[in-house]
């Protein structure tokens, strides 16, 4: 199982984040490798993404089923691969400043953001380092960022995703997808917050 998590903070209230997140069409194109999605109903949709697996790019089709709309705090969902043996689940968690289990968020200065592939390379190297150094963690390291000025944080969005590739090659594919997921989670959380900030 590959598990990633990223938190982004916002100057906007939790309700603004929720208003944006509750409508899938708003943020679907922000998903890394997004090609298309189709909603069957409020809870079910099918997605097509392109993603890197080792040296090749694969087209991934999967179903998403929202298991809980608990606005404005939480949306949980499950994934099931259509053309790949894969299952997964994810959560968008929204909280007011200080409500989450993070700390010191407002003291972090936003760094410049290089391109996707540069960050993917960094993620791969980070991943190798964690493995090679034996620093296996029960939870993946969070890369907290904030777009807010110190003291201005009013809410945070945490995106968590677990992917479990199935089939006999699952353990190997699991290791191959993890670096890309790290970057994808970071992109999605940050881009949602950035859009909410821009539209405020």
């Amino acid at each position: 199982m590959a598990e990633v998590q990223h938190t982004a903070t916002s100057t906007q209230p939790i309700e603004s984040i929720w208003e944006f997140v509750k409508e899938i069409d708003n943020w679907a194109p922000m998903v890394t490798g997004y090609q298309e999605h189709e909603k069957q109903n409020e809870n079910d949709s099918t997605w097509v993404l392109k993603g890197d697996l080792g040296s090749v790019t694969r087209t991934l089709k999967f179903k998403v089923h929202v298991t809980e709309w608990a606005g404005p705090e939480r949306v949980t969902f499950e994934l099931e691969g259509i053309n790949e043996l894969m299952t997964g689940k994810g959560v968008f968690s929204m909280s007011g400043a200080g409500d989450g289990d993070g700390d010191g968020l407002s003291e972090i200065t936003p760094p410049a953001r290089p391109g996707f592939f540069a960050r993917l390379r960094d993620a791969i190297v980070r991943f190798f380092v964690y493995k090679v150094m034996g620093r296996h963690e029960s939870r993946p390291p969070e890369d907290r960022q904030t777009s807010a000025e110190p003291g201005a944080v009013r809410s945070e969005l945490r995106f968590s995703l677990e992917i479990s590739p199935g089939g006999p090659m699952g353990p190997m594919i699991n290791a191959m997808v993890k670096p890309a997921l790290v970057v994808a989670a970071e992109d999605l959380a940050r881009d949602i917050v950035a859009r909410v900030e821009a539209e405020a």
């Binding site: 190798f128 493995k131 006999p168």
Partner: peptide, 16 residues
């Protein structure tokens, strides 16, 4: 190929 040791191969990928 479906019977190969993918725990070992996954470890190799992770450790490059």
């Amino acid at each position: 190929i479906t019977k190969w040791d993918y725990e070992l191969l996954g470890q190799r990928v992770a450790e490059d």
